[in-house]
């Protein structure tokens, strides 16, 4: 009987800060177990050794911001059996999707001496806008335990336990007092997907929305409460929605509803 070949794993980077790839390196205890189960075929952040495709699993970090990116992600898709987009950049366009609300040419003109050399797309877009994505793992950065869970589930042919409900569920499960109810602090938890174990609320801060919109986000009702009950200014509401997941549909639409409210 032939010995079972280890699945080959590749980690790819597009426009991003490397934070999600670092989550994988940060797995420490689990990393040895990961390398025991998979062959790391491409992971420049960790090793210069590069093995040719095809790959069984590709983890893709970062958003698509240049015509070159758009081409490269198609090649990666071709070479990958199972493609997982990791992090807010790869799943929603990341913080760099703020350019989607403005004219990117103005930015390049302001930043570069020779803007004509800059070949960039108008929008920063998530991987799923370009190729089929098998699984999206949210977060800015992703949670390393969730990453290990997705890899374990893949290896053993089961569904990953990655809930799509609100941060509030995790907040209540850990027994943290609600900062919105008990302190009047605006919190994106009710419209944000779980995954961080309600880290910020547990330390008395409102949720910043790192994991993007939850399964059925009612952003209009939440921001109406912020405005009417917490006395939050429209500009502040817009800013709260325009961070790492500004490009996600639910946060983008709601932030646009507050676009001219403060002019």
């Amino acid at each position: 009987m032939a010995t079972k070949r280890k699945p080959r794993l590749a980690v790819w980077k597009f426009a991003s800060c490397d934070g999600c790839q670092l989550s994988l390196l940060d797995c420490e205890d689990e990393l040895l177990a990961v390398t025991g189960q998979v062959e790391i075929a491409y992971f420049l952040e960790a090793s210069r050794a590069v093995l040719e495709g095809p790959y069984d699993v590709s983890l893709v970090e970062g958003s698509i911001t240049t015509p070159g990116d758009a081409e490269r992600i198609r090649e990666i898709r071709e070479a990958s059996k199972f493609l997982v987009a990791i992090g807010a950049c790869a799943t929603a366009g990341g913080i760099q999707a703020l350019r989607n609300f403005a004219d990117v040419r103005e930015f390049t003109a302001a930043v570069y001496a020779h803007p004509e050399y800059i070949d960039t797309l108008k929008r920063s877009s998530p991987i799923a806008e370009h190729v089929f994505v098998d699984f999206e793992l949210r977060g800015c950065p992703i949670n390393k335990y969730q990453l290990v869970e997705v890899i374990s589930a893949y290896l053993h042919g089961r569904k990953p336990n990655i809930p799509t409900y609100s941060v509030c569920m995790e907040c209540k499960l850990r027994g943290a007092p609600c900062v919105m109810v008990a302190a009047g602090i605006a919190c994106l938890g009710p419209v944000t997907q779980a995954g961080c174990q309600a880290l910020c609320p547990a330390y008395g801060r409102g949720c910043f929305g790192c994991y993007g919109p939850m399964e059925t986000p009612n952003t209009a009702a939440l921001t109406a409460w912020w405005r009417d009950q917490l006395g939050m200014a429209p500009a502040a509401i817009q800013r709260a929605l325009r961070t790492y997941n500004a490009g996600s549909e639910a946060f983008r639409k709601e932030s646009e509803a507050y676009e001219h409210a403060h002019d």
Binding site: S166, P190, V191, N218, A221
Partner: peptide
């Protein structure tokens, strides 16, 4: 319209 389906 008002419910956030947050589960609290």
């Amino acid at each position: 319209e008002r419910c956030l389906t947050c589960g609290n």
